[in-house]
Design a protein around this nucleic acid. Sequence first.
DNA 1: GAGCATTTGTCCGTATGTATT
DNA 2: CAATACATACGGACAAATGCT
Lengths: 241, 241
Amino acid sequence: MTSRGTRYLDIAEQLATELADLPTGARVAGEHDITLRFGVGRAAARAALQELERRLLVRRIQGAGTFVNRRIDYVISHDRRPSWHETIAAAGAQPRTVVLGVDVVALPEEPAALLDLPLGTPAHRLRRQSYIDDLLAATSHEWIPVATVPELGAALHAAESVDLVLRQVGRVQPVRSWSRVSLDVPPVDVIVGLRMESTAPVWLVESLSRDAETGLPVMCSSSWMRADALRVVVELGEGRG
Amino acid sequence: MTSRGTRYLDIAEQLATELADLPTGARVAGEHDITLRFGVGRAAARAALQELERRLLVRRIQGAGTFVNRRIDYVISHDRRPSWHETIAAAGAQPRTVVLGVDVVALPEEPAALLDLPLGTPAHRLRRQSYIDDLLAATSHEWIPVATVPELGAALHAAESVDLVLRQVGRVQPVRSWSRVSLDVPPVDVIVGLRMESTAPVWLVESLSRDAETGLPVMCSSSWMRADALRVVVELGEGRG
DNA sequence: GAGCATTTGTCCGTATGTATT
DNA sequence: CAATACATACGGACAAATGCT
């Protein structure tokens, strides 16, 4: 009797219910533990953990172990401008953003079209990484026309927030005016940039900010966010209640 | 020399480039073929195909084989109300929608709040399935207050489009006024409803339609769409060009 | 820094189950 | 019913990353 060819699913189901009561980041039974506890081979134990990983319930780290994972909601809507710091902190985790570098480049195709500027216009390219509890969860490129903030590089050393620099040094009021969200399999450089082991779909969030007064584009950005770390929710339209 | 411990990734990479030139739905080398061609064991061949499946490049069907897969864009924006039929047909595939059933139920929590009606208000519950080339790609629940269209069940037998029935029989002009999109691991009933083999995240699209004239809510729906079949893109804001 | 145990990652070969054709 | 192809599973082996000593 028994084996219907899905032992690993039964095991995954059992573990999933047990996981629900554990705190985020808690250690989960490893492959070897499972072989002992359920009396299966390593293949089945491994398949069970991979199933939980597909369901985004655990995160597995080679050499370290398997740990309880929970996504953090990142809500994008017409009246909400999500700040990384606020969103992550509100979920009870530790946010952190690191500037990888700033340089001036000629605007390539996409950001030029978005900013409504001629191809090749000089602009600051800002590369950043964002963390959740020391987990690299997002990388972003931001383009800011040099004309708007000539000395961005220097200003960024003083203030940590790009938004703040734009307001104080650039004397503009950036407002998110357009945004596009989808899920894609990222190019190789993004995968290594996010230190992702396995290739999997990742959120792609593009957006454009304009100056509140003049209506002129002041910044556009393109961010990749790990889907196993964030649950991006897009809300569209206002007629709800 | 040789094995650096990632043979399967090299194989996946090689196959991925070859796949790019094949038409959607074309047959791909099976596990056995790969073991012969690349001189690896079944484990590595399988891992390579699973990698391609993670990248949404192939679809694997037990007993049948492995086939080239391509997602269809499903764009949701303030000024675009996507119709399943139009979207799928525009991508060169065959759309189809099947009504599973219509019954009158007391409105549960969520749709009641969305429709701004008291809990338990009688409403039609419409369950539908949508196909892309005979692949079940989406299931949806729609709630329509009985007061709006008393004889929905009978009317649906004559016309195939819900939108049309609402316009002609209900004498309302449904306009999508609110929408929320996210990606979730669906409950078990949705997984079996979508005939999904493996558990994986699926799009959840919720929306509310109001009457263009009166502004009153006339319908709300909740749809699950397979992420390996559709690339849902949400566009937000209008200030683009 | 070097060394070691732990844990997951990769891979082999083989066997059997199950769905499709 | 038979052949094909993917799904599940066993057991063993070594690689690679991590964390601790």
